[in-house]
Structure formats: structure tokens, C-alpha cells
Amino acid sequence: MRDYTILILGGIVLLLAGAAWRSGGWELVLAGAVGGVKTLLLVAPLLLCAFLIAGLIQVLLTQDKVAYWLGEGSGWRGIFLACIGGALIPGGPYVYYPIAAALLRAGASLGVLVAFVSAKNVWPVVRLPLEFALLGPRLTVARLLTTFLIPPLLGFLAQALAGRQVEAIRENLK
């Protein structure tokens, strides 16, 4: 997955460098690259902190712990716990989707599952330091406040509108 991303990103960089060359010659090609590296160096101390926090959280909080914690909660309590679990769980989609599938197998409702995935998407504790470092405090705080209700709200909506679909979804799990 990552190698694939590197290839795509490398291709984009080459295309952009080509575009820079066409509109401003080698001077602009150099200016773009230097500008990028300068920005990286500027945020380097912040990135170091962000990665330190992410590493520590991942060691202190394992995926098993979160899954155990979530258990077979149901109703509003289950949705609430799923929001916290989703926010805290570290790892990319190849980590939390298998966990979500495991929760589903263990009997979680549709609302719990939707709340879990949504919380991972909008309140991810491990990603927040990076977001804070790159986008700044004002934007990060504004985003957290405006998206605050999404995970529980979406969990309730999913449960109320499509809760009965959960059996069909469970049956289709590999």
C-alpha cells in the first residue's frame, strides 16, 4: 500500500516539476523543491513531537485493550463507548477495519459500528498532534468543535434508520 502511495506521489512530484520547468525554467524547479524542504524543516520540531506522542499512545494503548473495552455494549451506552474507542484506537484502515469486523462478529450493533468508524475518522487522538502541528490551533479546535457531535449522531441515525440491516452485513463477513 505504502509503496503504491510513494509511486503515485513520486509521479505527481515529477509532473509538478515538469510544469514548473515549463513555466519558469530550472529556476522555478529549484525554487519549488527548496520551498518544500524549507517548509518541512520549519515544521520538523512539531513533527518530532507529533510522532513521539503517536508512538507513546500506541505503546500505552493496544488494540486488544480497546476491543475488550468495547465488549458487547448496546444502546446509547454502546454507541458512546464506541465513540471513545474509535477516537483512541491507533492505526490505519488495515488495522481498524479488521477490528470493526471483529466487533461485528462479536455482536455489535450497526449503530456501534458506525459510531466506531466515524469517531476514528473525525476524532482520531493519534492524528490530532500532526493536525495541530500542520494546520495550527485555531483550525484544529474549530474542526473538533464543529464535528464533535458527528460520531454519536451518526451512530444513532444508522441504528434508527438501518439497524435491521446488521444481520445481512454480518452474514456477508468473510
Binding site: 510513494i6 506521489l9 509538478l16 519558469g24 523543491a33 518544500g36 517548509t39 518541512l40
Partner: peptide
């Protein structure tokens, strides 16, 4: 492990900024 990605991402950013 993400350093190569970061370097490429920030180079992209440099080009986006000038272009």
C-alpha cells in the same frame, strides 16, 4: 518509515505553492 513520503509530500507542497 514515512520520511520518504513526507519528503515527497513537502516537495509537492513546494511546487503547489510556486505554481
Amino acid at each position: 518509515s514515512v520520511l520518504p513520503l513526507l519528503l515527497l509530500a513537502f516537495t509537492t507542497i513546494g511546487y503547489v505553492s510556486v505554481l
